[in-house]
Design a protein around this nucleic acid. Sequence first.
DNA 1: GATTAATCGAGACGGTACGTCAAGTCTTGAT
DNA 2: ATCAAGACTTGACGTACCGTCTCGATTAATC
Lengths: 201, 201, 201, 201
Amino acid sequence: MATATQSEGSPVINRGRPRDASRDEALRTAAVEVMAEVGYRALTMDAVAARAKAGKATIYRRWESKLDLIIDTCSRLVNRNVPVPDTGSPAKDLRGILRDFSGFLQGPAGKAAQALVGELPHEPELATAFRATFLAHQRSVVLSILQRGVDSGEFDRSAPLELVAEQAAAAICYRLMLTGESLSDEWVDELVDRGLLPMLR
Amino acid sequence: MATATQSEGSPVINRGRPRDASRDEALRTAAVEVMAEVGYRALTMDAVAARAKAGKATIYRRWESKLDLIIDTCSRLVNRNVPVPDTGSPAKDLRGILRDFSGFLQGPAGKAAQALVGELPHEPELATAFRATFLAHQRSVVLSILQRGVDSGEFDRSAPLELVAEQAAAAICYRLMLTGESLSDEWVDELVDRGLLPMLR
Amino acid sequence: MATATQSEGSPVINRGRPRDASRDEALRTAAVEVMAEVGYRALTMDAVAARAKAGKATIYRRWESKLDLIIDTCSRLVNRNVPVPDTGSPAKDLRGILRDFSGFLQGPAGKAAQALVGELPHEPELATAFRATFLAHQRSVVLSILQRGVDSGEFDRSAPLELVAEQAAAAICYRLMLTGESLSDEWVDELVDRGLLPMLR
Amino acid sequence: MATATQSEGSPVINRGRPRDASRDEALRTAAVEVMAEVGYRALTMDAVAARAKAGKATIYRRWESKLDLIIDTCSRLVNRNVPVPDTGSPAKDLRGILRDFSGFLQGPAGKAAQALVGELPHEPELATAFRATFLAHQRSVVLSILQRGVDSGEFDRSAPLELVAEQAAAAICYRLMLTGESLSDEWVDELVDRGLLPMLR
DNA sequence: GATTAATCGAGACGGTACGTCAAGTCTTGAT
DNA sequence: ATCAAGACTTGACGTACCGTCTCGATTAATC
């Protein structure tokens, strides 16, 4: 999988005109816009290039394929700095972080994620990257909150934390991608109170 | 959305050679086979036509597009007669039906469903059909089992049945489509025992 | 090559519904009309069938192919009864018959003939039929007039009659099909007086 | 009608990769070959593309249609440098140039020309181009020889030169396209001696 | 300051699939 | 057996997109 900028400290000195970093930005922006408008399937490299007023070669110099472009673009959307709430109440923190995720996923990142799901079974690299970026971070954050609850004695020591984290993510993704219903704060609260907390005793 | 055979009792007399129903069958079979081999993205109408020894026009006479063909084909896969278990133990029934769903979704139908998810946001008709076929039936079956449990007093009267049914579907879909982990019977049992039953008291 | 009506005195008695002869007429009329409107290339069997309110099978029961239909249809246009003029003056008769041919060829028959020319090299049967119908009759009529002139002593005994007849036909076809200029009576007269008569002394 | 290469001195600067002129050549060569093998009707763009190892888009970038491709290709065949004979004897020159034309038209160019004739009535642009390329040059060359004969006093001053030139072309085209007889040198000589020279006194 | 080499936008290139259309055959119910 | 209607297979059509390539023109680091 290609990356937009070579980050290894190569001993080879770079001769010639260096890449214009502003093109990276313009291309990723264009990709997100086109993706949001027409979806993954109907997104064409020509359209992205045209929107960014770039040549197609400029795209392929940075990313190996349409899929690669989209994965990289979406990853950057996801890898933002989420301030993990720590109010002293794990239940409250859980509601907080899931509200945050829900809100975030109702934006372009959610649409992008959904567009990629259909490609996962036949694109192993994509699947790996997708799980590493979209799923892993969310999961670890939720798990840390759950663990904090166990440590403080608020949650049962023998509660299936992994399963709870998975159920939290599953509920959000199901609504987002399958039923298409909105991820309102009220719904998140009900999910936590009546769906997740019972699993934690 | 096109349907392969007009079923309404139309007052218009049917003139000309009627559609060859065996072609419907052959085309749907070919579509499933090709889909299973190469996935949705790489499935081509030419390939389906060739496999069914049919002309492309014969496909387009029945379905408007590749998507339409796949939706219809998959819907028929899903709408099978699931014998709803009734052992007297709602918990057992729940495990049974979810095991059944899980097994079924690990076959071609599951792959097909996943392939369609990415198209939902930009294809309202597809979304409607998808939810009506893939989701609604599963949901109603689960709900009927839950209700039986409430009626028999085994489940709490105030339990959030809708939410439980949603969580059951969400868990399965999340594993199937997002994490890609297998839907083993053991996992289903754990899901029911530690994820769903706690929500029912 | 098929003919529209079986003319051989077959001993086989005809069972079942006999062919509707009025359909022959309707189909030929439709063929001429469509041909005149869009030309040979763009003429479709569906269009002819639709115009004649007939089924395609009804056409193919009578003619083997599109080409066959057109050849047969055009032949009937050409094989009309031309009253060969005989005024006592062979030169006058020549002008008369060529004026007649010219006028006739500016109608649908001329368009049809032109449409067929492009097909001749790769359709030997068509070529044979074309020459037998479109060319042979015209030629024999002209030749008979020329011979009459020789017999009466008005034309030279050693004149190349075949060549003259060919030049007459060539001139008309060239204008009709190649240059597209009109075949006016004045032009025909000039052709005869300054082109053909000098060849006859 | 499209032309393969823009030749006007356009003020617009040429951006992007320029057309590969060698593809023009390869495509025209392929077109002539396929045309010679199967004729105009059976010539397919796919066949031409395959023979030239080109994509279909590369053809359609240069020519609007099959017809356009063939017209352009044939025009180049026709527009060769014919050395107009000048032996001092206009009659001899006339025989020479008509022998040359005849020989040339029995090759691929003649077949191509014939294929196009049937399209002329319904394709005004084609007709114009056809007349400008196939007919005009031939005609002017013949006329120049005739004029030379008039100037030298060998041909009558009041001879209908235009008509003679037209008859010459008509005779050749008629044999080539209509009767299909061969354009032998003997026949050309007879045409000149007994058909054309008598018109010139 | 001149040279060098990789960049840039633009768009042509071979290839593949698309969805449409026509030719000629076959199948229905009705006459 | 005929008729109109229209479904059927086959195969070409002209378009669109992918990923590569080639052009003239920048642009920065090296010489």
